[in-house]
């Protein structure tokens, strides 16, 4: 969990797309993985990628238009559930030779991909790739995939913020209820008391906190409160 908090801090400092490339490389080292790939397509068809693959493999991939047969692209792009590459169909002859070529170019044999839906039809795909045996991969994903799913979504929000916003700050506005919640947390009330004051269940309160946390790109509740204060979104 500390890793996640640290990486969120690093990500929140990024102000340029080059900064996101540095972040992805940093993330790869911290999460001890072979490769990470983030690829975004906005509603106007504009694309952006931050990735750790060898540039010669990227060139080769684009030149051969491998997106046509890449099972990760075919199986994950229009969906929105995380998928282990094992669950994809690599059986076609062209697909398995594509995989062989990818491995020759430094990719690992394991992977999972997280499709992301953003506002106004924007979407993105975040993939983690590793070179290891099945058992080691199972251990890796059981420890790290939940973190990487959150980071993938935060990375996407950050990319949207950098691409779209002229002034810094979260892309998505906090709702009045989310502001109420963060304000009461900031002045030190506990969750039960806040739920009672707002006349909502603790379950509902958790959803407001979760949603506010995501909009702010915060790693945890404390971080969300701090960011809301920094951005002047709440005043105590």
């Amino acid at each position: 969990m500390n890793k996640l908090v640290d990486m969120q801090e690093v990500l929140s400092q990024a102000t340029t797309l080059e900064g996101l490339q540095d972040f992805v490389e940093n993330l790869r080292d911290v999460y001890d993985i072979e490769h990470l790939v983030y690829h975004s397509v906005n509603s106007k068809g504009g694309q952006y990628a931050a990735l750790t693959y060898d540039p010669s493999w990227v060139d080769r991939y684009l030149e051969k238009d491998y997106a046509r047969i890449d099972p990760v692209v075919q199986g994950a792009y229009r969906r929105f559930h995380p998928v282990d590459w094992k669950a994809l169909d690599w059986s076609a002859k062209a697909t398995s030779s594509f995989l062989g070529e990818a491995i020759d170019n430094g990719l690992g044999n394991q992977g999972f991909s997280i499709p992301i839906r953003g506002p106004s039809g924007q979407f993105a795909l975040f993939s983690a790739n590793q070179k290891c045996q099945d058992e080691a991969w199972a251990n890796y994903t059981s420890e790290r995939s939940a973190d990487l799913i959150l980071i993938a979504h935060y990375l996407n929000e950050k990319a949207l913020e950098i691409e779209g916003a002229t002034e810094r700050g979260p892309v998505r506005a906090l709702s009045p209820r989310e502001k109420d919640t963060l304000t009461l947390l900031a002045v030190g009330h506990n969750r039960a008391a806040i739920a009672e004051q707002l006349n909502i269940s603790e379950n509902t309160l958790r959803v407001y906190i979760e949603s506010a946390r995501f909009k702010l790109g915060a790693a945890n509740t404390t971080h969300a409160v701090a960011m809301a204060l920094i951005h002047g979104l709440i005043v105590v």
Binding site: F80, R117, P119, S120, Y208, K215
Partner: peptide, 21 residues
């Protein structure tokens, strides 16, 4: 995190803004 009916049309039912996570 993407476009949804509740966030596009029913914000008055969800605390005055979108619920996204």
């Amino acid at each position: 995190t993407g476009d949804t009916m509740v966030n596009d049309h029913f914000e008055h039912l969800t605390g005055g803004g979108a619920i996204c996570a």
